[in-house]
Design a protein around this nucleic acid. Structure first.
Lengths: 345, 345
DNA sequence: TTGTATGCGTTATCAA
DNA sequence: TTGATAACGCATACAA
């Protein structure tokens, strides 16, 4: 039956088995063109395909149609617990629309990022969801100018009309500061994420505003920038803050990992949280409720972030001339055990 | 210059710009065939490619060569912290060899898995790394019979000569039980993972052996199976064990998530760990050192697992007739605060 | 060393 | 409704 039983059957094998031309077989197998075919022929072709175990070759199809039913998802590092829920959110929407998702890690390295995106494009991905935006991001500008369909998730860039889906960081930070203020803290530090990222900058700015709104101590030295969003850099920032002998009774960390770095330093120096210092994280990554103490944090709906970014990308693919819109998803404060009123001496 | 400036340049555009035939351009651009070309021509072609910003179309290349420089990575769920390090390990090896990695999540659903793998195969992936093996796994058997190149990671199947890279679970469990025995525990429970998985079965069996080797209480009712490797099912198993009023002073959990489930139940019932009950997890997922109490666990080198699986897959791609070998990577016990001598009444 | 011709598997255009 | 033909972009056997 099959001309070459060792390799998978092609459309041609199906057509031969059904006694029709490949073009007819193609039309019979594609739901969108099946109507052009007599029901009887369609049935015969489908039966033949079935019995041969025919699977369309997506590579050939992509080449012909220059579509791939694939989108690229560009993230810094999958081992950061922030990203897996975003990935699953993206997939949950795209899969139901028949799209596949191709994930690449860039480690926030510009050259790797360029190479990975190039590789995605050479595979004809129909759009990009990007979670790696730095504020200054020439590659994104270039892609945008080339008309690449893309959506940012969890990040924004300035001065570039690219649609973005992010958590409402400003409100999240405001909730955190308000919570501390209500507990009675007046001198609050901020361990900021990298200020070269939209997120780091945004949160730092929101922190500053919130501090002023609540008429708390407004000291620039109480904000320390972390080089990366990591436990290690969070610890380093905390140490420098303590070594500076600035007195403060609470810390708003740029994210949960930075907050975990604070925990490390507390252990090193025999400080107690929350009695000596209160800490608030950001993101509500998994298992924070099981820490010692359980970490108060700002929850961002990451799965939803991914899902909405995917929906937005589908809209853009459907209508490329669609103007860029940004979507802000609400953040909420999750109060746990790492925050308490300050001890008054 | 470019016939159609709105679409990316093709090899043909490069050839025209360099004043050569496409075949020549193809040879000049491919390092493996460049030697057949005069240095001068090669230079001219490469310059033309450069100036046009030419990127080879991988889809066309795949169709022609039926190679894709891509392998598929099949995992249950990226949000399980076990898998991201494996993914990165796989990538670290494959990328340096010029391969790309396609990740798919199956949620351990047989139908999704079938569909995803089908989609990978239709994209001409050159091999599969599979982390989802159940003991009874007809799909794997079928793929194997079809000659699909694949390697299992973190899982094994019985009776099927498929290469596998796994942690040394048996030794890991033995270390855990020995540690508890040395602390003085004589009645130890096991919250097993799903016994339909190779991992769940293997660990449960190793537990049984270790208990006997140390002449501890050997009571089948002290082993409870969890339906999934989850916190939720770990908690359920722990509750049923407590409700049974079996007396035991320590628990070896099938993995860390199951151990976390125990923590939840301890909180519910006012039990204290480790003074009332000691707990050991498995995997050493991130941040366990920050739990209350820090979780004693068995560390498995997940990044290495991924890296070795990738190396093995490359070997298999290079030599398809290569006999299946299995690799066992050493597990180590990480003692933290969740284990202590039993309280004697 | 270079050019010619062909085909990978599919879909789209045109004609019958 | 179906068939013939061409083309997507590239790589390779063969010829020159």
């Amino acid at each position: 039956m099959n001309a070459n039983p060792s390799s998978p059957p092609t459309l041609r094998d199906v057509a031969e088995a059904a006694g029709v031309h490949t073009a007819t077989a193609s039309r019979a197998l594609n739901p969108k063109t099946r109507q052009q075919i007599s029901a009887e022929t369609a049935r015969r072709v489908m039966r033949a395909a079935e019995s041969l175990g025919y699977q369309p070759n997506s590579v050939a199809r992509s080449l012909k149609t220059s579509r791939s039913a694939t989108v690229g998802l560009v993230i810094p590092d999958l081992t950061n617990p922030l990203f897996p829920p975003i990935v699953r959110g993206v997939e949950s929407v795209l899969e139901s629309e028949g799209y596949n998702v191709w994930i690449v890690n860039t480690d926030n390295d510009a050259e790797r990022e360029r190479a990975k995106i190039e590789s995605l494009r050479s595979r004809q991905v129909e759009g990009l969801i990007v979670a790696t935006a730095r504020l200054e991001h020439p590659l994104l500008r270039q892609l945008h100018e080339q008309g690449v369909t893309m959506v940012l998730v969890n990040r924004q860039v300035e001065d570039l009309p690219i649609p973005a889906v992010t958590g409402d960081d400003a409100t999240g930070i405001t909730l955190a500061v308000r919570h501390l203020a209500e507990l009675g803290h007046t001198s609050i530090a901020h361990l900021a994420g990298p200020l070269g990222t939209s997120t780091g900058r945004l949160r730092a700015r929101a922190f500053r505003h919130a501090v002023r709104d609540h008429e708390l101590r407004d000291d620039p030295a109480l904000t320390v920038e972390c080089a990366y969003w990591s436990e290690h850099d969070g610890a380093a920032a905390m140490r420098s803050l303590l070594d500076d002998r600035r007195d403060f009774t609470a810390v708003v960390a740029g994210n949960d990992l930075i907050a975990l770095g604070c925990y490390d330093v507390f252990a090193e120096r025999g400080l107690s949280c929350p009695s000596d210092i209160s800490v608030i994280g950001f993101n509500d990554m998994p298992f924070l409720d099981k820490l010692r103490p359980p970490l108060t944090t700002v929850a961002v709906p990451h799965h939803e972030l991914g899902a909405e970014a995917a929906r937005m990308l589908l809209d853009c693919i459907g209508d490329p001339s669609r103007p860029a819109r940004s979507l802000l998803l609400p953040a909420t404060l999750v109060v746990r055990g790492s925050t308490a009123p300050p001890i008054t001496h």
